[in-house]
Each structure stands twice: as structure tokens, then as C-alpha cells.
Design a protein around this nucleic acid. Structure first.
Lengths: 212, 212
DNA sequence: TAGATTGTTAATCGATTAACAATC
DNA sequence: TAGATTGTTAATCGATTAACAATC
């Protein structure tokens, strides 16, 4: 399955959940596409890829579609994760609700700052970073979110790998060196910003041409 | 210029800045590719696209390459932006340093919560949302970052557009309805999470097959 | 039955990768 | 000059889009 299709999963998930809630038990690719600002053919291709089967003339069963997408994002044994680096971004992610129904359960935070260690954020306790190996092993947590400053990122990643973490969602602008079996997903907020800026520049240039 | 190339700009920018700092005045596509975990041909194609010209046998002038990429991301008159919705994520973005050298200067925050209005975050004052039109017009701010809850997103976007905002970086999982001339860049943190989870599932399946 | 919608097969498009001539 | 690296042109690959038969 291609990455673009995977990226669209959360969007489909949210829409299907909302429509099911609203009582729409069946839903067509045209309706989905209209609501999400895309083309119906993309929805049909994605759904075929996901293994969601519709009926000609009727469309897809909303609940079935929702469950299939949910199962694709929740099929691991455990969705529990640790968050390492409870700065501004880390706190934001700990507080963010949008991940709960998405196969991720943030059960604790870790930091080196003694001011924040021992506090609770959204009910999740913040532990000292040195506790990570012990707790990761005891709780069998395999996923970690890395939100530490650039300079600390590689060291933290090493500690996470030593502790048995096998999947790292990395928000530091650093290429982490990890063993082959560890999955790293890099998140770079600057990417989206770069696109906005370049689009704005283009739109401004076109605007100037238009007025001339 | 394609979106994938634009997305890679911040990554190039950070590396070039670091290497220049370290005294490397000339740099080859092979070196860049190695440092960023990519192929040299991709670097050369991107640089050609950006208008960065190298010399056979020597490579690229680090400073020139940096300036070209910088100019692509900074070429608008003003890079000043407002942040609307000073919750956890909003505060994290206000505090984040990685945007400063990237064509974005967050000059103020806006919120409806009277507990936070009047406070300062990283030196930026937080104003009441009702002040947005007045201040946007007076300061000629054209860019806004939207970090409010889903339910409030469309209303806030409307207010921003009325206030003269022409570019919106949208963190709410909502398709905003805006006039054609307004540029919207949607940011969905759940996308990256979906990819991590699907990769982990695949890796786990392969692992099981390997052990059998 | 007639009309609408899915899902498949083919065509198009854009990005990545490969090959290699140009050149410092 | 010889070797290394760029940049161009062509080939490959994957994703999107189009066309349309199947079918409820």
C-alpha cells in the first residue's frame, strides 16, 4: 500500500466516524469526495486498497468502512507509547485528543528537567529519563515519541532503543541512527511551512501579473 | 517546482547552515546526500530546480546554496504572522525556534480564553480574538496559524479572512471554506502517526514470518 | 428495466532513478 | 592530462486520472 493512501486514512476515519454518528449508515465515494474536497475515483481506489468493498448503486457501509480503517491502524498488540521530552511540543502532544482513537495511547512522559518530573499532564505522570529502560521493559512499551531538542535527540533515541523501543515518532530535525529493526517516522513541521510560504509567493506573483 | 522538492528545502537549509558554520565553504551532492540519508541525484535535481549552480569536480558553494534556498522561503515582503488559538499546540508553536530562520515571524497570539489573554509567551502578547481584525489591518499581517479546536476552526478562519489574512496554516482537522485568493496549508499530525503505525504493523508481520 | 455506482483496466502524469556527456 | 563531479537527457516507477464494463 502506498504512502499517499496511508496518509489519507485519518481523514477518512474522522469523516466516517462523524457520518456514522449522524446516522448515515451507507455512503458513496461521491459523498466522501465532496466532503473531503477530493475526487471520487481516489476514494474508490483507496478503499479497494484498504479492502473495503462497496455495492454498485448503493455505496459503502459506513460502519464496515470505519472498522476496516480502524483495524489497519490498530492491529498491533499494544498501542501504548511513551513520550520523551516534555517541553512545549511534548506537552501539546500529551494533551492532544486526536490520537486516542488512532491507535496510540500515551501512557507516560519522560524528561530530564527536575521541575517537570513528578508532575502530571492530562493524567499522565512525568518520570525522570533514567527511569525509561526500567518502565519500558516492565510495561512492554514498544513505541516512543521523541520531542527533545536537536542536541539531545540521538542520545535519547539510543536510550529508547536500549530500552526495547521499536518504533520512534521523531519530531527533532535530526536523522536518527538506529538499528534496522527500529522503525522511525520523521516529522518536520517546517515542511508544511515551506509549502505555505512558497504557495504564498506564487500567489503573490500571479496577483501582480493579474493587476498589470 | 514540485511539492516533494519544496518539502526538502528546510532539511537542506538546516544542513547547509550547519556546514557553513563548521567552515565547509564548498559541498558536493554526495556529501549532502550522505548526511541526509538520500541519493546524490536527488540533491542535484533539486538544486537545479532551485536554481543553485554547482561546478563539476568541486560541488556547490555552501553560502550561495544557503542564500538561494533562504530567498525562496523569504521572498515575500513580510513574514509576520499571527497565531490564533493559544492552547497547548499553539503555545508549542509560539515557543518553537525552528521557524524563525524560515520565513516566519510570529508577532502575536489570539485566543478567546480570558485566562490567557494578556499573558506573554516567548515575549509575544496574547490578545483577545476580537482584536484580530483591528491589529491585522494596522500591522498589515497577511499570514495566520490556526490552532483552535475543530468546532471553532471555520469561524476563526472566516474572521481571519475578513481581517485580511491571505495565508492560513491550518492545524485543525477541518476542510476550511475560504475565498480562492486565500492559500491554505493543512497540517494533520495524525498522518505521520498513521504511517508509523502501518510501518510497525508491516515490520511486525515480517518479523513473525522471519521467526517461523 | 433503467439508472447509478462500484471496481477494473488502461492512459496519463509527475517524480525518481539511471546513464553519460560536459567540464572544472 | 586524468579523475571527479555536475547537469542533462532518457528510462523507470508509482500515483493519479479516465474510461467503461459489471452489477445492484
Amino acid at each position: 500500500m502506498g504512502l499517499p493512501s496511508i496518509r489519507r486514512m485519518p481523514m477518512y476515519y474522522r469523516l466516517l466516524a462523524r457520518e456514522l454518528e449522524a446516522g448515515r449508515t451507507q455512503i458513496s465515494s461521491a459523498y466522501i469526495a465532496e466532503a473531503l474536497g477530493m475526487e471520487p475515483i481516489v476514494v474508490r481506489k483507496d478503499f479497494t486498497l484498504f479492502g473495503i468493498i462497496g455495492k454498485p448503486k448503493i455505496g459503502y457501509e459506513t460502519e464496515e468502512a470505519l472498522q476496516v480503517i480502524d483495524s489497519l491502524m490498530n492491529s498491533r498488540d499494544s498501542n501504548e507509547a511513551f513520550l520523551v521530552g516534555v517541553g512545549n511540543l511534548g506537552q501539546a502532544l500529551l494533551s492532544y485528543r486526536g490520537f486516542e482513537h488512532m491507535g496510540l495511547d500515551l501512557i507516560a512522559g519522560f524528561d530530564v528537567d527536575s521541575d517537570i518530573v513528578g508532575r502530571r499532564i492530562q493524567g499522565r505522570e512525568i518520570f525522570a529519563l533514567v527511569e525509561l529502560p526500567r518502565l519500558a521493559k516492565r510495561l512492554h512499551v514498544k513505541t516512543g515519541i521523541l520531542c527533545v531538542p536537536e542536541e539531545a535527540a540521538q542520545d535519547c533515541a539510543d536510550a529508547m532503543v536500549d530500552a526495547g523501543i521499536e518504533g520512534i515518532w521523531n519530531f527533532a530535525p535530526v536523522r536518527l541512527q538506529v538499528p534496522d529493526y527500529v522503525v522511525v517516522q520523521n516529522e518536520d513541521l517546517a515542511e508544511g511551512l515551506a509549502i505555505l510560504i512558497v504557495k504564498l509567493n506564487q500567489s503573490k506573483r500571479e496577483g501582480i501579473q493579474r493587476t498589470n
